[in-house]
Design a protein around this nucleic acid. Sequence first.
DNA 1: CGGGGGCCTTGATCCAGGTCAACCGGACGT
DNA 2: ACGTCCGGTTGACCTGGATCAAGGCCCCCG
Lengths: 245, 245
Amino acid sequence: MFELNKLPADCAQRRGGGGCAYCRARPFSVCASVPDADLHRLDALAETVVLAAGQALFHEGDPAGHVFNVTSGSVRTYRLLADGRRHIAGFLFAGDFIGLGVGETYGLSAEAIEATTVCRFRASEYRALMAERRELEAALLARAGDELAAAQRQMLLLARKTALERVASFLLDLPAADPLRPGPAGIVRLPMTRSEMADYLGLTLETVSRTLTRLKRSGLVRQLALNELRVEKPDALRALADGGA
Amino acid sequence: MFELNKLPADCAQRRGGGGCAYCRARPFSVCASVPDADLHRLDALAETVVLAAGQALFHEGDPAGHVFNVTSGSVRTYRLLADGRRHIAGFLFAGDFIGLGVGETYGLSAEAIEATTVCRFRASEYRALMAERRELEAALLARAGDELAAAQRQMLLLARKTALERVASFLLDLPAADPLRPGPAGIVRLPMTRSEMADYLGLTLETVSRTLTRLKRSGLVRQLALNELRVEKPDALRALADGGA
DNA sequence: CGGGGGCCTTGATCCAGGTCAACCGGACGT
DNA sequence: ACGTCCGGTTGACCTGGATCAAGGCCCCCG
């Protein structure tokens, strides 16, 4: 039911050619903590991996051999229950780090949503680099704190918000997550399907669709293209999202 | 509707008397990363705070002046929506650290569930100590990773599990969270009310009560006392919790 | 240019869990 | 001893969102 594409061995290569210096995602990533003068250390460990839409980075239960930085595109992380129910833990964009909670094995699966590039490190080498470059460790700790706070907001959403509030929250939070595509304020790009939004928000795809229709009809949101829309009344939408009566 | 008890100024005191060396929660906390020889550094910064049931440590939106370690008892962290809907983000026990995701202000409120002691540090001093003692920073990063993984499991629960699966998961995960009260295997102590369980699990208190009754009737669980029960069939309960058909 | 397969939307119906309400029992204060 | 309060349990009913089903649109491919 969900494809299990392998990662072709040839699409990842050790670089060493100073790629980090030109990485557009660096300012948004934990790599920003590494001073320019030390970038060669990162470069020496980094592999660039190019992914097509639907390709997997790893699967839940795989030995956790690598950590990743997303450099362009978007990634979903998810988990399945035995009977196929799916939960999408997060959508990741340029600058996001993958590998914070991981121990021996990955606790989630990760797949590209669209054409995506990630920067890959052997976990053991990355840990060694962390031990060497303290700022990197501090940056990861700060990032982990931010993600924890985001996870707590998401738990509130899942535990207590209505479908309308969930979708409204999603539309407001999503654009901020993708720093490479700031675009004009209020434009929301939706690279994922309705089904993926549903599995992220704890709803069904039908409910997501109906709820978006309601938001359009009420004029809070306008559809610009399939999977792109504009928030027309951000304050009203925010009030909705936060359960403001 | 929810009490807003103040923290009496006199219940917290700077110690400096070598308390950390005798702290029963230390082996389970991030403090375990500080070598015995350096414990005086922790002691110098630590204040012991004794809390009665229901007393608040801080409220959402307060300036985040302190971080905490729980040393005994239990704490709930929660957030409210404008109309009073509550979500309990977590139950914390001896060894748990409070202050990972915090920035300028607290994003959650925290209150003692029962008689509780916590160890309090000024956030600025704790940050300075972290800069000085690297192992502490590493311990916090590891802890943050664990919490992130736990948050992801909880999001799966909230997004996709049924009431029965949620309660079963809760009963299995809770005992492991309280290291000072290991007790005989399979004994679950529930210091929180049905309403608090509900707000943690994204249910209502009635549904929690009915679901516990179902578990008792089906023989998976036996009630020993009010708020204490024993898991009779851990494997069956685990299968239930994980949605195993 | 025609056919097929995703993805999306919309409608009709169903049901798990929410809501409202009654009652029970233990802990407490007087 | 008694009343009150708070937490828990149980029952009856309701509803938001799930489920089941039918098309529609668009894109790609032959």
